[in-house]
């Protein structure tokens, strides 16, 4: 028993205790001296944000957004794509500010140049990154506007909302996972991916092509390219479709999802997603959720 309390034990307990005490005091003083006074509301707001740091709001992560919101003392002009208006409402409630309604958006791939429709004319070899392939050549299919299929967008997605379809060699966007952070939009060297309104019941109609070449040239490399014929233009009763540089574009603000234009497109370049199957003609890939 006595051995436990011999001189060495006592000495070490005392000396270590003393060192610990001094260190604690130093730490406390330093912490006081270098204390950064921060608005506690920033933490509160950050707490409510999803914490994905995706940068979809245009700022460098959730903390930056929280800081910006608190600094501005209002929610005007801020949005959190992954959290949607729900999160903004929550923040508004917690802080006592008015939060506006924001339309849910989603990434849409505007190219359908799969292996089937735009068969490879050459074989690409090298670093599997679109950024390089884009500098090197027009793409295996030969369309200088089309998807290169190296999957930089999939790589950029932080939410597992995309994957490369091995058969088509095109990326697929998963409706339920995409949070509209725009990472893929920024990454795509050809600006194929567009942010569009998510639409009622996830229904969307869009031109799945961005080829601005003349119809004949575009058709040569891809069977489902928009050839700029303007048929859809005539069909649309709501002035939602514009034709520029041999390319039709559907304005999602004006489109009423009436489904008149897809059947008239001679190259099936207009896609409709998540609609019930048409009665007469079997339509292409209604992605089932």
């Amino acid at each position: 028993m006595n051995e436990l309390f011999n001189e060495i034990t006592v000495l070490s307990v005392v000396s270590l205790g003393a060192i610990g005490g001094v260190a604690a005091i130093v730490l406390f003083l330093v912490a006081q001296k270098f204390k950064v006074i921060e608005d506690p509301r920033i933490d509160e707001v950050e707490e409510l944000l999803p914490g994905a740091n995706c940068g979809g709001c245009g700022l460098a992560g959730c903390r930056a957004l929280a800081e910006a919101i608190v600094k501005a003392e209002s929610l005007d002009g801020f949005s959190c794509p992954p959290g949607g208006s729900e999160v903004m409402q929550d923040i508004g409630k917690a802080m006592g500010w008015e939060a506006g309604e924001s339309t849910p958006m989603i990434a849409v791939l505007r190219c359908n140049g799969s292996r089937e429709f735009a068969p490879p004319k050459v074989k690409y070899e090298g670093a599997m990154t679109c950024a390089f392939a884009h500098n090197l050549f027009a793409g295996e299919g030969g369309c200088p506007f089309g998807c290169l299929g190296c999957g930089d967008c999939v790589e950029a997605c932080d939410f597992d909302a995309m994957y490369m379809d091995k058969n088509t060699n095109l990326p697929v966007i998963l409706d339920d996972k995409c949070v509209a952070c725009q990472a893929c939009v920024k990454e795509c060297p050809r600006n194929i991916i567009e942010m569009r309104k998510k639409g009622k019941k996830n229904r969307r109609i869009f031109v799945s092509c961005i080829n601005e070449e003349k119809g004949g040239v575009a058709r040569k490399s891809c069977k489902v390219a928009c050839i700029g014929c303007g048929k859809c233009l005539k069909e649309c009763k709501f002035d939602a479709i514009t034709l520029e540089n041999n390319l039709a574009y559907i304005d999602y603000e004006k489109c009423t999802l009436c489904r008149k234009c897809p059947p008239v497109c001679p190259t099936n370049a207009i896609h409709e997603l998540n609609f019930p199957v048409r009665k007469k003609k079997v339509e292409k890939e209604a992605t089932t959720e």
């Binding site: 090298g126 670093a127 990154t129 950024a131 390089f132 500098n135």
Partner: peptide
């Protein structure tokens, strides 16, 4: 593919 990446 060193040069590929360096080019990018």
């Amino acid at each position: 593919p060193l040069l590929d990446h360096i080019r990018v």
